[in-house]
Structure formats: C-alpha cells, structure tokens
C-alpha cells in the first residue's frame, strides 16, 4: 500500500500498524504488525416499502489471519508474560462479524 497514494485509494489492503501491547502486571511492548485499512463500497438508497431506505455496508476487515505470540517484558512472577495478537494475511471488504470482532462505528 505504501507506494500508492492513500488519499485516492479504493479497496481494502494489508497495511502496517503499530500498537502498544500491554496487560496488567507486565511492561508494555511496541509491536509493528500487518492489519487492514481501506475504503469499501457502501450505499443507501430510497425504496418504497419500510424502512424506506435500503443500505449496503461493508467494511475493510481481516479475511485471513495467523496468530502471533510474544513475551511482554518485566512481568510479575505470577503473571503469564505471553501476549497473542492476530496478523493479517489477507484483508477484504466484508460484514463486521460481531462474533470475532469489536465493531466500532464513528461519526
């Protein structure tokens, strides 16, 4: 994605993402991994029957992942130091699955 102009990018792609892995009782760790970013097609159109507006909403999310486990530093003796997170292998426009995903929509 880095070579493409992101302001004009249409679609859903794997993109580098850095986050701070932390959990109680351990030190935190900056992790750079592959996540998903993009612009997917969404629309709303008027229809004659209730609810009078039909909508199509797809978001850029993980299609295929593998799990990566790291050890956090400086953990207390009684705390499990492992931290597991998903790495995006493939991203696609799709429905946000509330079974596996925290779906947040913002204004």
């Amino acid at each position: 994605v880095s070579t493409i102009n992101l302001r004009r990018f249409i679609g859903c792609a794997v993109r580098e993402f850095t986050f701070l892995a932390r959990k109680p009782g351990c030190g935190s760790l900056h992790i750079t991994t592959d996540a998903c970013w993009g612009r997917c097609e969404t629309w709303e159109k008027p229809i004659l029957e209730p609810p009078f507006i039909e909508s199509y909403q797809r978001v850029c999310t993980y299609n295929e992942t593998r799990l990566e486990t790291v050890k956090l530093p400086n953990c207390q003796p009684n705390v499990d130091p492992t931290y597991t997170y998903p790495v995006a292998l493939r991203c696609d426009c799709g429905v946000c699955l509330t079974s596996t995903t925290e779906c947040i929509t913002s204004v």
Binding site: R15, R22, T42, Y62, Y85, A88
Partner: peptide, 20 residues
C-alpha cells in the same frame, strides 16, 4: 429521477486492546 448515496468511506481493522 431520484438520488441515492454511494461511496467509499474509510474503515480499518487492527488487534484489539487488552481491555477489549
């Protein structure tokens, strides 16, 4: 002739925070 709204808005997905 009527109008719909069609387009491409930003979305992203990433590893959840520990609290989540």
């Amino acid at each position: 002739l009527v109008y719909a709204c069609v387009g491409y808005c930003e979305s992203s997905a990433f590893p959840s925070r520990y609290s989540v």
